[in-house]
C-alpha cells in the first residue's frame, strides 16, 4: 500500500488505490451492497479515461468517490494539489473544499441553484472562487455560453426554469471555465443535440491538449471513442479492469 507518497506512480496526477465502498440501507432492513471492491486507477495529465460498465457496476460510485462526494470504506485517493500529494480519504473538510476549488472539477448531471441567481453568475462562481476577478470570470463564461450556443436572452435568467440541455450547458461552462488539472465528467453530453455535442467534444480535446486529466462516464459511444484514450471497465461483483 502506498502509505508514503514516494511510491505513487511517476508522472501521475491522481492515484486511486484499492478503493472499497459499499452502501448500507438502514431503513430497508439494513441491506448492504458492496459496490467497489479494490478499484485502483493511476491517471496522468492529458489522459481522458472512460469509466464503462452496466448500470450498478460501480462506475458512478467510483467517480463520486474521486470527488470525495462519496466517502470510501477503505483505500486511498491521492491527488496532486498545488505541487503536493493529498489523500482525499484523510483530508479535513476544509482541505477538500480547497482541492475542489483549485484542482478537482466536476461536471454534474444536476444543477442545484438558488432561484434568482442568473445563469451567468451561477457559471462564473467557481472561477471567482478560485480568485479570478468578477469581470474576467464573466467574460470567460460569456464566451463559453456563446460557444455552447446558449441563447444570450437566457444568461441573466435563473437556470431553475431551463430545459435539461440548457442546464447541462450551464454546468459545462461552470466547470470548463476553470483550469482544473483534473476534471470529472458525469455524462456531459446526455441532453445535448448533435451540434452542441460536437462543441463539448472540442472542449474536451482542448483540455487534453492543455494537460488536463479527464475521467468520465459517457453513454454516447461516439463521443466516448473520440475523446477517450483510456478505459476502466466495471462489472457487477468483480474488480474493475483497465485497458487502453
Amino acid at each position: 500500500m502506498p502509505r508514503s507518497t514516494a511510491t505513487l506512480p511517476a508522472g501521475s496526477i491522481l492515484h486511486a488505490h484499492k478503493l472499497y465502498k459499499g452502501f448500507t440501507l438502514h431503513n430497508q432492513g439494513g441491506i448492504h451492497f458492496p459496490v467497489l471492491q479494490g478499484a485502483s486507477l493511476a491517471v496522468h495529465p492529458g489522459d481522458c479515461w472512460a469509466l464503462t460498465g452496466a448500470s450498478g457496476s460501480g462506475k458512478s460510485t467510483f467517480m463520486r468517490s474521486l470527488y470525495a462526494n462519496y466517502r470510501t470504506d477503505q483505500g486511498e485517493i491521492w491527488v496532486q494539489h498545488q505541487g503536493e500529494w493529498k489523500n482525499l480519504t484523510t483530508c479535513e473538510p476544509h482541505e477538500i473544499l480547497e482541492i475542489r476549488i483549485y484542482t478537482l472539477g466536476y461536471v454534474s448531471q444536476f444543477l442545484r441553484v438558488i432561484p434568482r441567481v442568473s445563469a451567468l453568475d451561477v457559471a462564473a462562481e467557481p472561477l471567482i472562487d478560485s480568485g479570478v476577478e468578477v469581470t474576467v470570470a464573466q467574460a470567460k463564461v460569456r464566451s463559453l455560453f456563446e460557444l455552447l450556443n446558449l441563447p444570450s436572452r437566457l444568461w441573466s435568467l435563473s437556470p431553475t426554469t431551463f430545459s435539461g440541455g440548457e442546464k447541462q450547458r450551464v454546468n459545462i461552462a461552470r466547470a470548463f471555465a476553470v483550469n482544473y488539472p483534473i476534471l470529472l465528467l458525469d455524462e456531459p453530453t446526455s441532453s445535448l443535440d448533435a451540434a452542441n455535442r460536437e462543441v463539448v467534444v472540442q472542449l474536451i480535446q482542448e483540455k487534453k491538449e492543455q494537460g488536463c486529466a479527464l475521467i468520465g462516464i459517457f453513454h454516447d459511444e461516439e463521443v466516448k471513442s473520440r475523446v477517450c484514450n483510456r478505459a476502466m471497465a466495471f462489472s457487477l461483483n468483480e474488480e474493475a479492469t483497465i485497458s487502453g
Binding site: 431503513n27 462526494n69 466517502r71 473544499l97
Partner: peptide, 21 residues
C-alpha cells in the same frame, strides 16, 4: 458530520438516511 454533499448524497447513519429519504 461531513461536507454537505457527502452527508446528503452518501448518508451513513440510519437517522440521516431516514431524514433525507
Amino acid at each position: 458530520q461531513g461536507l454537505t454533499d457527502q452527508v446528503l448524497d452518501d448518508p451513513h447513519h440510519p437517522y440521516t438516511q431516514s431524514l433525507i429519504s
